[in-house]
Design a protein around this nucleic acid. Structure first.
Lengths: 96, 96
DNA sequence: TTTCTAATTAGATTACTGTCTAAATATAAT
DNA sequence: ATTATATTTAGACAGTAATCTAATTAGAAA
């Protein structure tokens, strides 16, 4: 299960806040870093973790790097949570 | 945000497996521990973490302790994930 | 080329986490 | 009371993770 990386990434509150900021659209590394009381290298580390967990994507534009939320992995996590709470009748169960 | 504990609890694959085992109903500490290649004290530690995160409940019955999934916290997490991926047009979001 | 800005990488430090063995607690049974 | 069973608590240790400062890379502008 490769989404272990995603779960570990979400365990840090700073990273969850980063994702929340990215809800409305992409942001540059610098713009994101400004929002936190933390050095840029530390922020860069969090970006790396999020990227490796596939929770964000990145692209360079000139000297800035834009980060964006990757919603597909979040959807996978949601599916995991739904499976956990879903009534036991849906998973491989053929309907009647 | 107290659900920080829940996110941290979910970061460990053993704990996620425990939750998965509890999907179909409660189990005793011993029955759960048997399913893993790990000492009982280690398993007990995981139970504690899950309990503190409110992801499971427990009750004693004689000399055994029964653990059960607490679905309400999982639902909260699902809500968090849904909010993350929900389209930004819900509220007053101006397009860029 | 030199300089400026944006961002990352390297290395160190500190704190936290998962796991173990050994000991303790709680309940039940003899 | 003693013994047995189920589970937790205590303490130690190794590995991991978050953060910092200092140095480096990448691109733009001069």
């Amino acid at each position: 299960m490769s989404s272990n990386e995603a779960f570990k990434a979400l365990a840090d509150p700073t990273r969850r806040e980063i994702l929340a900021l990215l809800r409305r659209g992409e942001m540059t590394a610098g713009a994101l870093a400004e929002k936190f009381d933390m050095t840029k290298p530390s922020m860069s580390h969090h970006f790396t973790v999020l990227k490796e967990a596939d929770l964000v994507t990145s692209r360079r534009e000139g000297q800035q790097i834009w980060y964006a939320l990757n919603t597909t992995v979040v959807q996978d996590l949601m599916a995991w949570a739904m499976d956990l709470i879903g009534d036991g009748n849906k998973k491989g169960a053929k309907k009647r």
